[in-house]
Design a protein around this nucleic acid. Sequence first.
DNA 1: CTGTTAGCGCCTTCAA
DNA 2: TTGAAGGCGCTAACAG
Lengths: 342, 342
Amino acid sequence: MSSGQVTIKDIARQLNISVATVSRALRDFPDINENTKKAVVSLAAELDYRPNQIAQSLVKRRTNTIGVVIPTFVIPFYASAISGIQEEAARANYNVIVCQSNESHETEVANIYTLASSRVDGILVSLSKETTNFEHLQCLQKKGIEIVFFNRVYDDMPVARVVVDDYEGAVAATEHLISIGRKRIAHLSGPANLSISQERQRGYIDTLEKYNLPVSEELIVPCDFSTACGIEAARQLLQLHPLPDAIFAVSDSVAFGAMKVLKQHGIKIPEDIAIVGYTDEPTASLVDPDLTTVAQPTFEIGQTAARLLLGQINEQTKNIVQERTILKTRLIIRGSTVKSKV
Amino acid sequence: MSSGQVTIKDIARQLNISVATVSRALRDFPDINENTKKAVVSLAAELDYRPNQIAQSLVKRRTNTIGVVIPTFVIPFYASAISGIQEEAARANYNVIVCQSNESHETEVANIYTLASSRVDGILVSLSKETTNFEHLQCLQKKGIEIVFFNRVYDDMPVARVVVDDYEGAVAATEHLISIGRKRIAHLSGPANLSISQERQRGYIDTLEKYNLPVSEELIVPCDFSTACGIEAARQLLQLHPLPDAIFAVSDSVAFGAMKVLKQHGIKIPEDIAIVGYTDEPTASLVDPDLTTVAQPTFEIGQTAARLLLGQINEQTKNIVQERTILKTRLIIRGSTVKSKV
DNA sequence: CTGTTAGCGCCTTCAA
DNA sequence: TTGAAGGCGCTAACAG
């Protein structure tokens, strides 16, 4: 009680019983006298006793905490995914510690080691755009800390992954653009080392080929996931002759940047250039025209990843599930590709 | 080592020295033989030893962790503020556990007790829109857990608070609307129990009065901070005769909802109705027209709150700082109030 | 410079 | 049904 926090010792002393009895009473053990139990429980309530999770963790050798490493909160995808993670974790009585890598590999490594020191029971990871070395993660596995990847995953490690069908989403987006008559479709692509970038680009290229449209290097502009990069990339596209008649962007944020530039240049969306994004961030339905996009079940991705991780943590049979869980995307057609009939 | 995690015991055993020596060597104590230190440090590195923070916390009686309770990650203000908090915490070698209340008082209370069980050293709180009872927070103080409020604060508790000058921001917004000739200015206001709502509304009303404009009940529509509510509120405004010629919204998200409705109804922004928001979320410069808004230093708010909290935690002289730290806002004029000269 | 002892708050045998 | 004892991994005196 000296620290302001009540302990089972305090309760034991006041009731003249042993701490062991208090501990058992509080955890509702079978062989406990009804009266002593009542006394303990009511005194605990009165003193507002809260079990010290730290002490519990030390003896139980598990913290009931999972760590999450994401690139940044500021990408709406992650804000939503984390909500899903937290909901699922809370349901199972788990705490969540979230770290941001800020897209830096170095920070990501530091995050992982911090979480290891915190003795989290498992970690959810979405890679930084820089990450190409995976020692820090392999190291975790050796220590018996469970890992599940989500969204930005690494495929060559024996761990579970939760992703959407990026390829299919990209195919749907590209086919949609082709279906409205576009023939010169540009792609603003994501960081090359991330599989989500690769898959989306592959979907784009394969679809062009399927419809016998030429795949042109100049129409594929490397980008990251930021609006700033979308702005820059769009400026680059505007140098081309002839101009593209459509853009498939690797993310909504990139698409927003591109839209801004096009509008500044008096280019009409969708008449002159149609645009499709990826994710369906809340902003997608607020811009003008509203953005056609490949919607991802962001909240559900978080939930699923958390559920998988918790499953692994509590699995008695440690048969590592190294499958991809693939969630569906959904193309949402809006004004940036099809003029709305007002 | 049985648990997969290396402990100082493992190191001690392998080196045939005591755990105390290992502990000291690892923490770079003065009176340690250079050679044993080297041996310990290098073996620790080899085994990839990570100190067990749990055990450290138990003996040090501090966890080097702070808790954060926010309404939701999905409000961009908080995504950014948390980045500020984490940066500041990381600098001081603190971990951060973030909980969302989802705007529910009940969940907020649960969050607080979870954090108390986790024995965080301090908590940053931004209240849910429902919260009008503060027992859970007063309870924390009794246990010696430091608290700092930010953004959505409660003024009748002896704790530090970090806010922006909401009143002044609202005055600037309203004066700007008046300066461009608007006389019938509506206000979409926030939840009534939050001081940020009250202050922004007060700034609006005082400014109208200052300029001898009538303050009309029908022009003040209660809202929360969501786009959905902005949509609904705008529909309500459209029932009025005559229509307002300007809207000051309690947040950007609300303003986005209102803009959407106005555009659907063919009302020209800013010619027919000018709009001002609050916060300067990233989306504000992406909508069309881009949104005039009262910018808040979101990242800095988080930083400041964290810095204050860490200061209190490490304060030897426990003189409770119960002052408001008031940061500045900045009116950013864009196309939703002043037609840009293209 | 280093080892021994004790204890952080709690849980878990083992006896009683 | 309950208490005593030992230990989770680490730190903090106190000797030596």
